[in-house]
């Protein structure tokens, strides 16, 4: 089986995987980092968004072998100990989640947006979140959270 090595949340990890192992399965099943979610089987929902070399990608639509040598950040890598990341804090303050299933992907996408654009408009936030589906909130408070979180990060 192919072997892979990558850095996840600052920690170097090694593993042996089948070629067909999706990156999200390597993260969840092998590394036991279950904050990254799988909400669909069609690459549409965005619950599995992580950062690879700083860019937001859907970890369900990438093979673990394709991430060989990559720097990966998952939702578990954002907080600093007990102190939430400003984007996580903003989602809490603005009631940006209800059931929370989509939240890891939402927050990883939001952080990627905020790194490019520290003061996104509502329209820019909605455009950027087109690949993240939420079935509870109606998005309104998510958009508020992202705008507040981006401001707090800058």
């Amino acid at each position: 089986m192919p072997s892979v090595s990558m850095t996840i949340n600052g920690k170097k990890v090694l593993g042996e995987v089948e070629a067909r192992t999706l990156l999200v399965d390597f993260i969840r099943e092998d590394q036991r980092l279950t904050g990254t979610h799988v909400g669909c089987d069609t690459s549409q929902c965005g619950a599995c968004v992580i950062h690879i070399n700083g860019e937001a990608v859907k970890s369900c639509t990438m093979l673990a072998v394709q991430a060989n040598g990559a720097e990966i950040t998952t939702i578990e890598g954002l907080a600093n100990g007990d102190e939430l990341h400003p984007m996580q804090e903003a989602f809490r303050d603005n009631h940006g989640l209800q059931c929370g299933f989509c939240t890891p992907g939402m927050i990883m996408s939001a952080v990627a947006l905020a790194k490019r654009n520290s003061a996104p408009s509502e329209k820019e936030v909605r455009h950027y979140l087109e690949g993240n589906l939420c079935r509870c909130t109606g998005y309104h408070n998510i958009v508020k959270s992202v705008i507040a979180g981006a401001r707090a990060m800058s």
Binding site: V57, G131, N132
Partner: peptide, 9 residues
């Protein structure tokens, strides 16, 4: 095209 995560890959 698609969404940001799709455009990144």
């Amino acid at each position: 095209i698609g969404d940001p995560a799709v455009r990144n890959r």
